[in-house]
């Protein structure tokens, strides 16, 4: 395979990384809000949180992407397809991240919050200073896992016309008749990116050791 082809694949893989990274970040923000809503004593909030999760977890990502891609123009909202792609990925990963974080939030011992109550931390301060860091630590391994899943799932955004890594490999394979080399190279690139994510995750996890060996 020529160097030129490989360079095209690498460029497409940057695109894959960008779309995934943006979606995971947005998903983390939405997921945090959704998990807080699911756990809220307010019934309306907790029902909407859980409905969000069951919808975006229950409908295949491919269907979600196609739905968003067709729905937005039908509603008169014209957005570039990359926005539709990121919206779909973000909402889907938000649902999974919300579930991971919910588990994290629920395992914060009640006593830690009572201690916070006693020194006067408001509920928002408790969320920010006590619950969020502890929940994040507990959820971190599954969040890294989710990041890897989303990176791989980002190959689906080709259905809305995004030429990311998988699609680029397909296009090049069709024009060069060298599918085995191209898909092997694409696979290798995915593997390297995911190694980097896993490595970054473990570095990040180490900063959450809090004195444990």
């Amino acid at each position: 395979m020529s160097w030129k082809l490989f360079e095209l694949l690498v460029q497409a893989s940057f695109y894959t990384v960008q779309i995934s990274f943006i979606s995971i970040t947005i998903g983390l923000v939405i997921g945090t809000a959704v998990s807080a809503a699911s756990l809220s004593p307010n019934r309306a909030l907790s029902i909407s949180g859980r409905t969000f999760v069951s919808f975006f977890r229950g409908v295949p990502l491919l269907v979600q992407l196609l739905l968003i891609y067709n729905l937005l123009p039908a509603l008169g909202i014209n957005v570039p397809s990359v926005v539709a792609a990121i919206t779909g990925l973000s909402l889907c990963t938000a649902a999974y991240q919300a579930e991971n974080l919910r588990g994290g939030f629920q395992s914060v011992p009640r006593g830690l919050l009572e201690a916070a109550d006693m020194v006067g931390l408001s509920s928002f301060q408790q969320f920010r200073r006590i619950k969020a860091p502890i929940a994040l630590r507990l959820a971190l391994p599954s969040l890294v896992n989710e990041a890897i899943m989303i990176l791989k799932a980002s190959s689906l955004v080709s259905v809305v016309g995004i030429v990311e890594l998988t699609r680029m490999a397909q296009d090049l394979a069709a024009s060069t008749y060298r599918p085995i080399e191209l898909f092997s190279a694409a696979g290798l690139l995915y593997l390297i990116i995911n190694w980097l994510i896993a490595w970054g995750g473990s570095v990040f996890e180490r900063s959450f050791r809090w004195g444990r060996p």
């Binding site: 011992p109 006593g111 830690l112 201690a115 109550d117 502890i134 809090w210």
Partner: peptide, 21 residues
């Protein structure tokens, strides 16, 4: 909160925040 600020509480399980020194 204002009235409670006059009270300090010590728990059986300590309840220290594990992520803070």
């Amino acid at each position: 909160r204002a009235v409670r600020s006059q009270i300090g509480m010590v728990f059986q399980q300590f309840n220290l925040w594990p992520h803070m020194t």
